[in-house]
Amino acid sequence: MRIRNLLAVTMLTGIYSLIVAVLFVLLDAPDVALTEAAVGAGLMVILMLGTIALTTQEERRQSMRHNLLALVVVAITGAALIYATLDMPLFGDPEAPAHVHLSPRFTQESPDEIGIPNMVTSVLASYRGIDTLGEAVVVFAAAVGVLLVLGTGAVRGRGHGNRGRARREDQDEAP
């Protein structure tokens, strides 16, 4: 089965994100679920729709030749990954490395140390504060990159008949 309509693919991506968000809720990770639902199913789909509106709705047809070597490489990599999962701890195993190293310290002492009940926020904002600062800088860098490539998107002073002038303004305004 192959879908060439990019609109349908975008819809499926959004639905997939929503299902993953439900999965995160079932795994008791509401913070991540909220992010996944808002970013994956919300904003990202809108940005993809914007891209489709700017480009095209149909994927270009390419001549498909069956590549046996690629199939072999994919099969071996997949088998290796499945073999690697056999070494992973079981789901919810209390002896898993992730649960014996730093987690007890965070769960037992963060209420006294930080004084707020949401431990995810404590870890994100305080114990891992520099990571979160870096994350904010990365988000900011994304905006700078998009501004450089696409322009500001400012509508003011841009009529329907003078697209050339508008484009020149875009380039002037881009930092």
Partner: peptide, 23 residues
């Protein structure tokens, strides 16, 4: 600070994509 940045960056990205074709 994170909230302000993310909201403003989200708006910036959306404006850039949506405003590309003119009004």
């Amino acid at each position: 600070g994170v909230g302000i940045t993310v909201a403003a960056v989200g708006l910036t990205l959306f404006y850039s994509f949506a405003g590309r074709r003119g009004g």
